[in-house]
């Protein structure tokens, strides 16, 4: 049986972070700049300024 030895784990840790970083950054940027998301972002940013201090009941 192969055991997970220290060197393999260390190698994985040292290399994995970089790929993970790149993948995550791309994902986040795509989400943030996805054109159809713009509307809900703008709305959200404005919505908190509306001074209607009541919960919505519908």
């Amino acid at each position: 049986m192969m055991s997970i030895d220290h060197d393999i784990l260390v190698w994985f840790s040292k290399s994995f972070g970089l790929f993970y970083l790149i993948a995550l950054s791309i994902g986040v940027l795509v989400y943030a700049y996805w054109p159809s998301n713009k509307k809900s972002f703008d709305q959200a940013a404005q919505a908190i300024l509306v001074d209607d201090d009541k919960p919505y009941r519908g």
Partner: peptide, 26 residues
């Protein structure tokens, strides 16, 4: 929440707040 509310202006860039959120979390 409180800064935009008090300044009566929306966040400068909502997108950046999301990007930095994941950056910080990561």
């Amino acid at each position: 929440y409180y800064m935009p509310k008090r300044a009566q202006r929306p966040i400068y860039s909502y997108r950046m707040s999301i990007i930095s959120f994941w950056g910080i979390t990561f």
